[in-house]
Design a protein around this nucleic acid. Structure first.
Lengths: 244, 244
DNA sequence: CCGTATTCAAATGTCAGACATTTAAATGTC
DNA sequence: GACATTTAAATGTCTGACATTTGAATACGG
């Protein structure tokens, strides 16, 4: 005899869900001010503490911001791409670290996404994008440790993403690429391999400039193979991973 | 004379940030139980209410879950792909609706991502993936209203994404594709155009089965052109959008 | 009349203590 | 040993208060 299959969700959860729904529906628009905590407490017939817990949840999701003082209160946030990217990166990073993603899967996903981006970059890029790529390549070519190399690497890929000039794509991919940086940092880049990689990057930049989509795709296939090979050589050098 | 440039963040925010950092650092692992609210209040030298507000924030970000009762408490969540996708979809949907993304940009992003996916689907797909695609196509071909057509459309694309058999990619793309559904729902699909689309889908499924990556890419270019044309015809039929 | 200082009011942020509810373990009973 | 009861620990909620911040109204002096 199941007494009450409906899991009775806490009141604070219910309140935050309802407010979130009103925001999603456009009932509460960006910039609107929510009623004060005391008013909300009266509306929902609960205490201020309960309302506050609900509001903190909305704030955590970036749906509202709160201000103190005379004309303060809770205001519906205008969700920006920058804020969404930040949250996306944080979530993706945790997701990857908690689920023990194997390197091959990560590399595969990353390159798949970047190929998509490069496709658009070929047709949409501007001069500034090429400059950004070249700056990143120069940083890669300078003497630097592995971590700096990786950071410059991210810069290059970020430039490639931005060259697509599509904010939605940038939002999606920035999350993926940045979240994978810790994984990428696991690689060590011997001098000889760095040269190979840099040469491929130069060719990518050149192909983008020449607006040759097929060539870009082809180079990225090469690049992916190089990265995977690099990782596998590192693995075999260190021997199989021992559990525990 | 700026007295205190450092914006003093509320204590509850500080606490949630610190706990979130401990989770991200792996200091608190999935499944671990946080100290009870009373203990945390003692540790941070604050009241239980303040601790609770901090915990609600973490719960909103899906970092912890709470349970009542004797051996209840706050436990570090094992972040699953499914949960992350749900959050990602919600955020992306809001982001798109709040930032008035134009249709062309959305379509461009969507097809760019799907091309990336299709590339992997060609090499990674299994028989079950092809079956899922065909099921979706059959639903598309049956008599249905625009909304049902769109839903089936999403199913097809979801099947394509899953065929890549890369969880990271699925996570990223599911968010993008599902978030764009409201935009896609804006289109009306006349009978003649449906046939065109369905024919293209059949060809995609066929090319995936034949493991012909170039052909898949080519068909998707066609498909994108068709969708854009469809939208533009609809726009011109209704005339330019009037403000207000 | 204008500019400055003071006061005020409204709102969030925090605290303390209490009670309600849930849950599993400990205990008692047959 | 199986079942019912008690109990303890934890979250969920309420109440009322005070602290702090901030813009606006007000008072004052020139």
């Amino acid at each position: 005899m199941p007494p009450d299959q409906t899991a009775p969700k806490p009141l604070s959860t219910d309140i935050s869900d309802r407010l979130a729904a009103r925001i999603a529906d456009g009932d509460l628009m960006a910039g609107d001010r929510l009623p004060s905590e005391a008013e909300l407490a009266a509306q929902f017939d609960c205490s201020r503490a309960t309302v506050r817990e609900a509001l903190k949840r909305l704030a955590a999701k970036n749906l509202i911001r709160t201000a103190r003082g005379h004309s303060g209160g809770a205001f519906v946030n205008n969700l920006t791409y920058a804020a969404a990217v930040e949250a996306h990166v944080a979530t993706s990073t945790l997701l990857l670290s908690m689920n023990a993603v194997d390197f091959q899967t990560a590399v595969e996903a990353r390159f798949a996404l970047e190929r998509a981006c490069a496709h658009l970059a070929v047709t949409h890029h501007e001069a500034s994008d090429l400059r950004a790529m070249k700056t990143a390549i120069n940083r890669l070519a300078s003497k630097c440790n592995d971590e700096q190399f990786c950071a410059a690497d991210v810069s290059f890929h970020r430039a490639l993403v931005d060259a697509a000039h599509n904010p939605i794509l940038s939002y999606q991919l920035a999350g993926a690429v940045e979240a994978m940086q810790p994984l990428m940092n696991m690689i060590t880049y011997p001098e000889r391999d760095r040269e190979v990689i840099i040469r491929l990057y130069r060719r990518i930049a050149g192909a983008v400039m020449a607006r040759d989509a097929a060539e870009v795709r082809h180079i990225m296939d090469e690049l992916e193979a190089v990265i995977l090979d690099l990782f596998q050589r590192r693995q075999s050098r260190r021997g199989p991973v021992k559990p525990g």
